[in-house]
Design a protein around this nucleic acid. Structure first.
Lengths: 151, 151
DNA sequence: AGCTTCTATATCGTGTAACGATATATATAT
DNA sequence: ATATATATATCGTTACACGATATAGAAGCT
């Protein structure tokens, strides 16, 4: 069915995955550098983004941020500690449930994040096609229905 | 032109970016867990993938891996040290240029990577639509040509 | 009310991975 | 032969994520 090629199916999948991760790393690396240039650590940037980018109905607590960042809640506690200390966000006790801490960006946090968001939008617009292409290729190369006979 | 909405343009961009990063983190988290389940550290997995997934013409050296992983070469040296110690890959001196180390997977490395590749292909196939959608939205929301009047 | 259990956040100690600065070996150019 | 460039390696430091554990408040039960 498929045209003959020099490389095996499994080689093809590896190459495709490698290419996808390469593109991804390039984006993430860009993002890390952009955050650093703005005086943030990459994770602080991600925290601010998830806090400020939450839908309005959400109560933005530590647990919410942890879920959005795929982190354990106590990792976020530490991230919030650092970020609060640096004046990027505030933590206030929720009056309706005093166990909870509600997170909110400071003016400064908003400013920094705003600039980063613009930079990221521009960069992503540029690399979106390559990422999308790599994604599509994976969908195609993972075609074989029964567990592949790879070796 | 655009239909009226409750949220500002900048809020919309933040939400879109937050959603994209959320999807991305979910994938990366899946990948981290898959690697750990296979007995690898996430970066070892990435190293093996870039080594085994390189086009045939490439001489896979430390420097090549560093570029593909967006890491400094000495970070890769350490990664290779660990991986070699664990029998995942071999490092042999290039005879044509004895400064260079040539990287190659061991049989065991190939086996482990092969399994991970299959898992990733399946997972990516499933989340590709959501990622692609988020990507597309960013392209659209980053529409405004002159530097936005955000803030 | 008191008691238990659950949930949300916080603290402590540990391991890992990335980095900058620096060193060494080999290759290349003059 | 000497200088310069390139590839890899070593060392010390820092940040960040985690597991284990602790504390405070909320919710449910009798």
């Amino acid at each position: 069915m498929s045209t003959r090629s020099k490389v095996s199916d499994s080689q093809l999948l590896l190459r495709t995955l490698a290419e996808f991760r390469y593109e991804l790393r390039q984006f993430l690396h860009f993002s890390e550098r952009a955050a650093a240039a703005a005086g943030l650590q990459p994770q602080q940037h991600q925290l601010l983004l998830q806090v400020a980018g939450a839908p309005e109905r959400e109560v933005v607590t530590i647990a919410y941020a942890a879920e959005r960042l795929s982190l354990r809640h106590h990792s976020v506690v530490e991230l919030v500690n650092r970020s609060e200390r640096e004046g990027l966000l505030t933590r206030t006790v929720d009056m309706r449930d005093r166990r909870r801490a509600i997170l909110k960006l400071t003016r400064m946090g908003e400013l920094v994040l705003g600039r980063l968001a613009g930079d990221h939008a521009r960069e992503l617009k540029e690399m979106a096609p390559r990422l999308a292409k790599a994604l599509k290729r994976i969908g195609m190369s993972a075609q074989d229905p029964a567990g592949s006979k790879t070796r």
